[in-house]
């Protein structure tokens, strides 16, 4: 059992190491493949030292905290509205029909396409970036919640009614727990898209934030810093999704227990 896991981790670390080595070779040889060139790609070593320097600089905290604040605000609002609206739509055929047309129309518009309008609509660029983050997270959360509510076994609802369930109890003790695994999935996906949208928005409208830092590094020709920014974006996106998934698993013990 542990051997198996060890083997797996070795394999993963190995593939990561190979990527790094290939990168090192390609950029130290200034490899030019015609359509893509490594001439301007910094060496891994330079990236590491740039990262260490950035970690020590006071700007680090400012960039990270403003990105985190935006994600938390946008994602948080999206979670509240997405889950709330999803529960109502999933439960009420009337409201579901009523909201279907506008939602179907808005859904395929990528959050990034909202950026110009958002900048025009909101009084501060801060708010417009939060709005973009919100838009990115909203649909995955909303749609997964609706799907979760609709897939609650009707026999469970019938049983609960026969056991004397009140309307509130139906929602809190049957519908929400029943939809919870789907809601968690929606939140995890929404977290990913909200990082994605935030970084894009920061590149265009930001003054601080990891996305802004990455883009600024490009304009200032600090090439290693571009990669530091990219890696940070990846790490934060991955970390927050993992955090959500872990929280979901802790909150839904029955779900993980019987699926094993």
């Amino acid at each position: 059992m542990t051997r198996f896991h060890l083997g797996r981790w070795l394999r993963r670390a190995g593939s990561l190491a190979i990527c790094l080595i290939l990168w090192q070779i390609a950029s130290s040889l200034r490899l030019n493949l015609g359509i893509v060139t490594f001439e301007n790609v910094p060496l891994p070593v330079d990236v590491v030292s740039a990262a260490l320097e950035f970690l020590r600089s006071p700007k680090f905290f400012a960039h990270i905290s403003s990105s985190l604040e935006r994600v938390l605000a946008g994602f948080g609002i999206a979670a509240v509205i997405g889950i709330g609206l999803g529960l109502v739509i999933g439960r009420s055929r009337w409201l579901g029909d009523f909201l279907q047309a506008p939602l179907e129309l808005l859904r395929p518009i990528p959050a990034v396409a909202w950026i110009p309008l958002a900048v025009l609509m909101f009084s501060s660029s801060e708010l417009s970036m939060i709005f973009i983050t919100f838009t990115g997270a909203l649909f995955p959360i909303l749609l997964n919640t609706v799907h979760g509510v609709e897939s609650v076994d009707p026999r469970l609802i019938a049983s609960a009614r026969s056991l004397g369930s009140t309307r509130t109890a139906m929602l809190l003790e049957v519908i929400i727990p029943g939809a919870a695994p789907n809601i968690v999935t929606g939140l995890v996906i929404g977290m990913g898209t909200s990082w994605f949208c935030l970084v894009t928005a920061e590149m265009i409208a930001g003054q601080f934030g990891i996305g802004y830092y990455t883009w600024e590094s490009y304009t200032l020709q600090n090439y290693p810093e571009i990669i530091v920014g990219m890696i940070l974006i990846g790490l934060f996106g991955m970390g927050s999704s993992a955090l959500l998934r872990a929280a979901g698993a802790a909150l839904l013990p029955w779900h993980t227990k019987d699926s094993k």
Binding site: R155, E173, W254, D258
Partner: peptide, 16 residues
């Protein structure tokens, strides 16, 4: 109404 309890074939306990 709980006065008329119903039991189905299976899978109607609350899994959570």
């Amino acid at each position: 109404h709980p006065e008329r309890g119903i039991v189905f074939q299976h899978h109607t306990l609350f899994p959570w």
